[in-house]
Design a protein around this nucleic acid. Structure first.
Length: 585
RNA sequence: GGGUCCUUAGCUCAGGGGAUAGAGCAACCGCCUUCUAAGCGGUCGGUCACUGGUUCGAAUCCAGUAGGACCCGCCA
């Protein structure tokens, strides 16, 4: 309905000028969706703020606007209501025409962005030699969804996994690997370190307890950084092993991402220091080279430095992030760089962005955006942990969701005396379980903390993945039962809206383009979730009140078109959340 | 101490200047000889933390207060 909005807005502006003269050429008619369906489709609130300026009553102003407004091609006669709202209701024929156009469109009427951008979405970012855990859940799911939406809107998206593959901890890991599995140096592919977490813990334990080991580890860091072949090989083996583990999770979550870790930016770090120095931004502070960003002070009330180069000459993650900003704007030509990272790092990103701006590394057409999200909490409101108090591994979390989905399904199948193959149950449980984990995360406003609950996300009713998957399955059921091939409905078939439930569904279907545009701009996937949930509700109401297969023509085909549009919208919308639909469940 | 975010129905959350504040869950009451009832309808439930301010209009913007979470490491 973006087209309708654009047209109505233009007409309202014309009417304002026609009614009150060219002084109002810049006035905003304040056209917004109607706050309540009984007021129609849209309302223009522009009359009220003009009362003072025009020295007239808002209702009288609204009447004068109406006298100069011709929207009869789109709308029923507009009405003035309340303190001065102009209510606009789209004509049924217009809705029907739009629905037909959407049905004929392979993008469901969603226009790609007029000015496609190069967008980098930086998300997930686990650490090499550590396991993916619940802390990576939100970034991975939210980042993937944002990337999917931007891709669908026609932007050129580069998904980057800024993995932690560099830093001092690699000294102890390399040393421990060399000493526990020397064969890693000759044939790194053959090495299986087994449980990476255990490996990391062993290395850490030795590092903390054994001074000689600690010394060898420090030497290993130097060796690695100076390009020593053996250190490099060991490092590669560690990365390779981690990569395989990460990929299992990404495959299961159906996530594509390109690894470009911290090490990628190594060669660019000295230039960051040099250029900041040349710009006069770098300050010596207790032996370290730092930049003071404005507005940051530490616990003691002193200015908070952003450390660019440590007193020992090493770099840290601020340096890497700055190098990445430059590389992404210069070499990748990014217009937007989206960092999907927890809200705890807001300070860090503010500082880094500020320094990058000051240094002149952020061209005018480039936007650096931190997309923050809250922490995952258990149902007790505390940090989400296992019963024994350990960090929850992502693999275990997904397993449990799927297991619970499967148990649910089995009891249902039994209760309904259905016969289903184990493969079917397994497939449905996997998609429902994974979909539920993703949906419950995405459906919340990401800025707040997120209370994780298997029971709620897997609930069969309410704003959950299973509810929406079921709405989709219902359409597929109609297709099977009626032998309907939705791809080959009669091309000349048209939509005729009669029942209230049909109108509500139709109006909602037509809002997809607005919602996706908003999500692409604001980067809040929960808006899309809200839209899809409401769509499912409206479809279920329609399904309840309007029989489809038993209806007489032409109503039958008209309703089939509504079913088809619903299914395609759900499928597309869910796919942009990274959720796969099912034919049966 | 400084900073960021949060506080809306019993619970989990939407809504971020516009009409009477919305969902879901829970509780209670109805609806399956008819496309999967994993559904639909209804009832109950609110000092939008508090106090001021801005505005024709504030849950929404601003300031302050109270409570909560997180950040303030030469880790990433």
């Amino acid at each position: 309905m973006k087209a309708a909005i654009a047209t109505l807005e233009a007409r309202l502006k014309q009417a304002l000028v026609a009614a009150f003269g060219p002084d109002l050429a810049g006035a905003d008619p304040l056209l917004v969706p109607a706050s309540n369906p009984k007021f129609g489709d849209f309302q223009a609130n522009g009359a009220m703020p003009l009362a003072k300026q025009l020295k007239d009553k808002p209702r009288a102003i609204a009447e004068k606007i109406l006298a100069h407004l011709d929207v009869s091609d789109l709308c029923e006669p507009p009405e003035v209501a309340g303190p001065g709202f102009i209510n606009l209701r789209l004509k049924t024929e217009y809705l029907e025409r739009q629905l037909k156009a959407v049905q004929d469109s392979d993008r469901l009427g969603v226009e790609p962005a007029k000015e496609p951008q190069k967008v980098i979405v930086d998300f997930s970012s686990p650490n090499i030699a550590k396991e993916m855990h619940v802390g990576h859940l939100r970034s991975t799911i939210i980042g993937d969804s944002i990337a999917r939406v931007l891709e669908f809107m026609g932007h050129d998206v580069l998904r980057l996994n800024h993995v932690g593959d560099w830093g001092t901890q690699f000294g102890m890991l390399i040393t421990h690997l060399k000493e526990s599995s020397p064969e890693a140096l000759t044939s790194p592919e053959s090495v299986d370190m087994g449980d990476l977490v255990a490996f990391y813990k062993e290395a850490k334990k030795r590092f903390d307890e054994d001074d000689a080991f600690k010394t060898r580890s420090r030497e290993a860091v130097v060796a690695l950084q100076s390009g020593d072949e053996a250190a490099r090989t060991a490092w590669n083996a560690l990365c390779e092993q981690s990569r395989r583990e990460f990929q299992k999770i990404y495959d299961r979550l159906d996530i594509r991402i390109e690894e470009r870790g911290e090490s990628f930016y190594n060669s660019l770090l000295p230039a960051v220091v040099r250029d900041l120095e040349n710009l006069g931004l770098l300050v010596e502070n207790q032996g370290a080279k730092v930049v003071f960003a404005e507005g940051f002070i530490n616990k003691d009330g002193d200015p908070l430095p952003l450390i660019i180069q440590k007193s020992d000459g090493g770099y840290n993650y601020a340096t890497t992030d700055l190098a990445a900003v430059r590389q992404r704007t210069d070499k990748e030509g990014a217009n937007r760089v989206v960092y999907v990272v927890d809200a705890g790092q807001s300070n860090h990103f503010e500082q880094v962005f500020q320094v990058a701006e000051k240094a002149g590394w952020v061209p005018e057409n480039v936007e650096l955006i931190h997309v923050p999200f809250g922490v995952v909490q258990g149902e007790d409101g505390k940090k989400f942990k296992t019963r024994s108090g350990e960090t929850v591994r992502l693999k275990d979390l997904l397993d449990e969701a799927v297991e619970r989905a499967q148990a649910d399904m089995n009891s249902r199948i039994q209760a309904e005396s259905r016969e289903e193959s184990p493969e079917f149950v397994q497939d449905v449980a996997e998609k429902v379980g994974i979909g539920a984990v993703k949906y419950s995360d995405l459906s919340q406003n990401r800025t707040s903390n997120y209370i994780f609950s298997y029971d709620k996300m897997l609930a069969l009713q309410g704003n959950t993945a299973p509810y929406m998957l079921y709405a989709y399955v219902r359409v597929r059921g109609i297709s099977r039962k009626g032998g309907i091939d939705f791809e080959h409905l009669p091309p000349d078939a048209t939509v005729h809206l009669e029942d209230e439930a049909e109108f509500a569904l139709a109006r909602h279907l037509l809002q997809l383009d607005e919602v996706l545009e908003e999500v692409a701009l604001e980067l809040f996937p929960n808006r899309l979730c809200q839209y899809l949930f409401e769509l499912s509700q409206k479809f279920n109401q329609f399904y309840d009140r309007c029989s489809v297969l038993q209806a007489e023509e032409p109503q039958r085909t008209s309703r089939l078109i509504l079913c088809d549009l619903t299914a395609r919208t759900l499928k597309l919308g869910l796919s942009l959340l990274g959720i796969q639909v099912l034919e049966r469940m």
